[in-house]
Design a protein around this nucleic acid. Sequence first.
DNA 1: CGCAATGTTGATAACAATCAAGCTCGGTGG
DNA 2: CCACCGAGCTTGATTGTTATCAACATTGCG
Lengths: 256, 256
Amino acid sequence: MLQATAIASQPVAFVLPAGKGAAAHARSAVACSSCCLQGVCLPCGLTERDLDRFDELAAAKRRVTRGSFLYREGDTFEYLYAVRSGAFKTVGVSHHGEEKITAFHLAGELLGLEAISAGRYGYSAVALEDSQVCAIPFAALETLSLAVPILQHQLFRTISGDISRDQGLMLLLGSMSAEQRLAAFLLSLSRRYQRLGFAADRFVLRMTREEIGNYLGLTLETVSRLFSRFQKDGLIAVRQREVELREAARLREIVG
Amino acid sequence: MLQATAIASQPVAFVLPAGKGAAAHARSAVACSSCCLQGVCLPCGLTERDLDRFDELAAAKRRVTRGSFLYREGDTFEYLYAVRSGAFKTVGVSHHGEEKITAFHLAGELLGLEAISAGRYGYSAVALEDSQVCAIPFAALETLSLAVPILQHQLFRTISGDISRDQGLMLLLGSMSAEQRLAAFLLSLSRRYQRLGFAADRFVLRMTREEIGNYLGLTLETVSRLFSRFQKDGLIAVRQREVELREAARLREIVG
DNA sequence: CGCAATGTTGATAACAATCAAGCTCGGTGG
DNA sequence: CCACCGAGCTTGATTGTTATCAACATTGCG
């Protein structure tokens, strides 16, 4: 049984940008225009003018400490969240109280997209480490999208991208062996870290074996055994949460 | 190994609405305004005037015979397709040439959403029976969405809904037993037929046991055995592809 | 230092896959 | 009209992968 490490919602720290409200809309450290995720985040591709308008929307930042909830399943949907730093898991509660992780979200990725259709968050979002997010009020985002075609397009693309990602995972869960699942998982993380500008072959897992297993539809023991086997076979080097992909090509072979 | 029953693309029959081009834009039998799927399809909620504009967009209908492809993985993305009648499966090819069904699509559901982000269809769409779709050029749809806020909202909702559906399936594939998967599958079909105005407890499967198994991550033998067991236990009555849910409540119990 | 959380490894068991045989139904040709 | 054929389905026997149960190691933290 998997449990969030902290059940009580932490008091939420909202971090407002220094320049907020200033006529010149000075570039604060937290503005999109000076954010290191510019190339990968939602507003990517906007003109400077439009970026400023978007900045105002997404001005509210929020800190979330490790183990606490960003939002809970069933909460009324109001914000999309862009992960600025840190990492999250989204967790659905299945029937008998067991939790099922539906996704991990790294920096530059959006949270809450599944809530648009129902008006309520379909899953709970829990921080895997101390994190920071930009809160984007969705109603205002929709309005802005009507005036900024590129933003609308970007939104469609982003939401659609989520579908692709999910369907990829379904393929994984529905037809892969335990070995293939873990290999695919490691390669996916590698790609995503690379996109963020980090090394592709060396990263630190943000989640426990149990969480990986839960996500992949395996038990933590199986995950642990596979890490050991992959290491024995020279595919990777693991030491706790540090992972080094030594033979990404062979991992890809395993996946197919 | 699963194969599309017809490999060659059929010559495509485009069906143009009779009233197309007529100044008065007379209500043709295929116009959205006279379509029985009005309540569940994409343009639901539009004013009459906006509906007309949408109608022009989605004027092109297309017949797809059983077993033939609506589009293929890798094709350049141009159209979203709304299923008018019939049913489809979307199929991804995994590595060693095996096929994996990522979704079934009934009337009133959209096809091609996953292609928006990549600009190419991520999966192939194959008709499970003789079907008809509305072809909606996405670029024009985006443009219209800028002018019709409700349509934009509807699109966001629809795409987001797809994410929810997928994540539900991931939950299913990742953490359910074979028994739970099949029960969940039957209940899902039941709900979707009901949404279309059909009986919830009695329907005809559009797909083979093999396709069900493929979709659920099970073998066809396991699916067959489960159908037999469910019948023996009085949960359902099956005769070939005809299914009657006798104890939906107990099926729900099985799922959790 | 000691405790709790996390991770590893081994033994056993259960579930679903695989292999195999035969059945049912609908279509086709003799 | 009937016999045959093949696709789809059912059922049984066996195997293999992964879950489960269990014990122990490691790490980080109070």
